[in-house]
């Protein structure tokens, strides 16, 4: 196994493409920092520029967290092509005839590509932090907590890289795993929105109803007349979206990454680096349209609802467990197929 790991890492080391990708990933956050700095300099027209701590923290996260959007896509292209060459050129046969077991071959391929995926993430985070630190925005990693959050995203990227490696190992044709991997990454955005739209569960809606009725009562209305139609929350979409949310880490993009559009708003409140993540449907326009439920509770009230907001620590733990479990599932199922695969 050690021999094969050395082999795989040497192959990555000797691959020009792997270095080019690493370089590009390290450069992307720097370009983002430079571009935003130039915009700010242009807008401020040479006047003194001050940035609040909250904004600095938000921007630091913005600069380093986008690896989650870039790295999976480049891995979707790189890994199947790189691993697929072993089939196309037949070198995988040399590994088998040398006396390595299929488990060793499979394991070394997966470990090396997962390590490369981690290296891309770390390169992005590192240069993003350095560039941010040098820039007028400064770098604020929230006492190191931000790095823990980035680690959760990295674990998810590693799980994805394992899937891409497995696809390349079980499908001999090089084009098919590339297409499947790219489609998988392209579905991230939709899957994330679908999953997080239905992140809530029955207990949360019940607790919401309790607090909502209390507030309606206080407002002088009769709660019975304004009964909550729960069926509209737990409709067809919920039965698809909720299992995706519970079983996969598809929701990470929406829950962890702030959209670049929020930066255009440019006020401190909107540029928050939150320590709690909302998991309720009540601020969603779509949900309001579907359920006709008026938003009776403001954010302060919603925070009293069980499960409406979850601490980042809990969210990280949930996603980390799912990333590890999916890595194990991809590995196990992949090996079961690879074990019997005709490799010539």
């Amino acid at each position: 196994m050690v021999e094969l790991l050395k082999f795989e890492f040497y192959r990555l080391y000797k691959s020009k493409l792997s270095w080019i990708i690493l370089g590009v990933m390290a450069l992307l956050p720097v370009l983002a920092v430079v571009a935003l700095s130039l915009i700010v300099l242009y807008v401020s027209r040479g006047q003194d520029f001050e940035i609040e701590a909250e904004q600095s923290r938000f921007l630091t996260w913005l600069f380093i967290s986008y690896f989650y959007k870039w790295v999976p896509m480049v891995l979707a292209l790189f890994i199947p092509l790189f691993v697929g060459r072993d089939y196309r050129d037949g070198f995988i046969r040399n590994k088998l005839t040398a006396g390595h077991t299929r488990m060793q071959i499979f394991g070394a391929a997966v470990i090396s590509k997962a390590t490369y995926a981690a290296a891309l993430c770390i390169a992005y985070i590192t240069t993003g932090l350095i560039a941010s630190f040098i820039s007028p925005f400064g770098a604020d990693i929230n006492g190191g907590e931000m790095l823990v959050r980035a680690f959760s995203l990295m674990l998810s990227v590693i799980a994805t890289s394992v899937l891409f490696t497995v696809l390349a190992l079980i499908i001999k044709n090089r084009a098919v795993p590339v297409i499947l991997s790219v489609l998988f990454v392209m579905s991230f955005g939709v899957a994330s929105t679908l999953a997080t739209t239905f992140a809530y569960d029955h207990a949360m809606i019940n607790d919401y109803e309790r607090i909502r009725d209390k507030k309606i009562d206080k407002m002088g209305y009769d709660p019975d007349e304004m009964e909550l139609d729960k069926d509209k929350f737990f409709n067809f979409g919920w039965y698809i979206g909720h299992p995706i949310f519970v079983m996969t880490n598809a929701g990470m993009q929406d829950e962890f990454i702030t959209g670049t559009t929020s930066i255009m708003i440019l006020n401190a409140e909107s540029l928050q680096y939150s320590d709690e993540i909302p998991r309720h449907p009540f601020n969603s326009l779509v949900t309001t349209l579907v359920t006709q439920e008026m938003n009776f509770l403001d954010e302060k009230d919603l925070k009293k609802v069980d499960g409406a907001y979850v601490s980042v620590g809990t969210v990280e733990l949930q996603y980390n467990i799912k990333s590890v479990l999916w890595t194990a599932v991809y590995f196990g199922a992949g090996y079961a197929l690879f074990r019997k695969k005709n490799v010539f």
């Binding site: 021999e3 094969l4 050395k6 082999f7 040497y10 192959r11 000797k14 060459r85 196309r88 050129d89 037949g90 070198f91 995988i92 046969r93 040399n94 590994k95 005839t97 040398a98 006396g99 390595h100 010539f344």
Partner: peptide, 30 residues
């Protein structure tokens, strides 16, 4: 490792590497 050397059907070599690099890969493999 390496007790059996084989050339079965086509030569198993990386087309994008030189002869020396291919041999080096086999050294690492073993």
């Amino acid at each position: 490792l390496g007790t059996t050397g084989a050339l079965v059907e086509l030569p198993s070599i990386y087309a994008n590497k030189s002869a020396e690099e291919n041999i080096k890969f086999q050294y690492l493999n073993l």
